[in-house]
Amino acid sequence: MALPARQPRSVFPELSELFDSLRLPALGTVFGNNPIRVEDRIDEGRYIVRAELPGLDPDQDISVTVDHGRLDIHAERTEEKTEKGRSEFSYGSFHRSVTLPAGAKDDDVEASYTQGILTISIGLGEEPDTAKKIDIKTTD
């Protein structure tokens, strides 16, 4: 079985990465969501996405969904209020969407969480043929 060709990365970052870089200290992220940093690769017929989510309870704070060629990761970190001290931690809702490569099987998804890293593994199948010859009918 041939693996689907890896889509080349654009010279330009994904829009979510661009928006995530526009952080203003007083306002958080310009578009409201905190970023989730990810890395991805294809390994032994599987698409692997790793997300950096330290200090969360995967059973209560993290949600992973796959739908129509998109992987969505949602997380929530609740702020612990204290009278003294300061915090540089990010609190609130976190979200990241990743476009899946061609041939990704949305019914073959596994996720695990170890030492603050969420790892999602998605099976890959044959890349569907995208070109289709269309017959042209003639009329008199």
Results as ranks from 00 to 15, higher is better:
residue 1 M to F: 13
residue 3 L to E: 14
residue 3 L to A: 14
residue 3 L to N: 15
residue 4 P to W: 07
residue 5 A to C: 11
residue 5 A to Y: 09
residue 7 Q to Y: 10
residue 8 P to L: 13
residue 8 P to H: 13
residue 8 P to E: 14
residue 9 R to S: 15
residue 9 R to F: 10
residue 10 S to N: 10
residue 12 F to C: 08
residue 12 F to G: 04
residue 13 P to Y: 06
residue 14 E to C: 07
residue 15 L to A: 10
residue 15 L to H: 08
residue 15 L to Q: 11
residue 16 S to G: 10
residue 18 L to I: 14
residue 19 F to C: 08
residue 19 F to A: 12
residue 20 D to Q: 08
residue 21 S to R: 15
residue 22 L to R: 05
residue 22 L to W: 04
residue 24 L to M: 11
residue 26 A to N: 08
residue 26 A to P: 07
residue 30 V to G: 02
residue 30 V to C: 02
residue 33 N to I: 08
residue 33 N to S: 14
residue 34 N to W: 11
residue 35 P to S: 07
residue 35 P to N: 06
residue 36 I to K: 06
residue 36 I to D: 04
residue 37 R to V: 15
residue 37 R to A: 14
residue 38 V to H: 09
residue 39 E to G: 07
residue 39 E to Q: 07
residue 40 D to N: 14
residue 40 D to F: 09
residue 41 R to Y: 03
residue 41 R to H: 05
residue 42 I to P: 01
residue 42 I to F: 04
residue 44 E to L: 12
residue 46 R to H: 14
residue 46 R to S: 12
residue 48 I to P: 02
residue 49 V to T: 11
residue 50 R to M: 07
residue 50 R to A: 07
residue 51 A to I: 01
residue 52 E to K: 02
residue 53 L to A: 00
residue 53 L to I: 00
residue 56 L to F: 02
residue 57 D to C: 00
residue 59 D to G: 00
residue 59 D to V: 03
residue 60 Q to S: 04
residue 60 Q to H: 05
residue 61 D to K: 01
residue 61 D to V: 01
residue 63 S to A: 04
residue 64 V to K: 02
residue 64 V to T: 01
residue 65 T to H: 04
residue 72 D to T: 15
residue 73 I to D: 03
residue 73 I to R: 00
residue 73 I to C: 02
residue 74 H to T: 04
residue 74 H to W: 10
residue 74 H to C: 04
residue 75 A to K: 02
residue 75 A to F: 05
residue 76 E to A: 11
residue 77 R to F: 03
residue 77 R to I: 00
residue 79 E to L: 11
residue 81 K to L: 15
residue 81 K to C: 11
residue 83 E to R: 09
residue 83 E to Y: 07
residue 84 K to P: 00
residue 84 K to S: 12
residue 84 K to M: 10
residue 85 G to H: 01
residue 87 S to K: 06
residue 88 E to Q: 13
residue 90 S to H: 12
residue 91 Y to N: 06
residue 91 Y to E: 06
residue 91 Y to L: 05
residue 92 G to S: 02
residue 92 G to D: 05
residue 93 S to T: 04
residue 93 S to G: 03
residue 94 F to D: 01
residue 96 R to G: 04
residue 97 S to F: 13
residue 98 V to S: 01
residue 99 T to W: 08
residue 99 T to M: 09
residue 100 L to I: 09
residue 100 L to P: 09
residue 103 G to W: 06
residue 104 A to G: 12
residue 104 A to M: 13
residue 106 D to Y: 01
residue 108 D to Q: 09
residue 109 V to T: 06
residue 109 V to Y: 04
residue 109 V to E: 06
residue 109 V to D: 06
residue 110 E to Y: 14
residue 111 A to D: 15
residue 111 A to T: 15
residue 114 T to F: 13
residue 115 Q to W: 10
residue 118 L to V: 10
residue 119 T to W: 13
residue 119 T to G: 13
residue 120 I to W: 05
residue 120 I to P: 02
residue 121 S to F: 11
residue 126 E to Q: 15
residue 128 P to M: 13
residue 131 A to Y: 06
residue 132 K to S: 15
residue 135 D to Y: 08
residue 139 T to L: 12
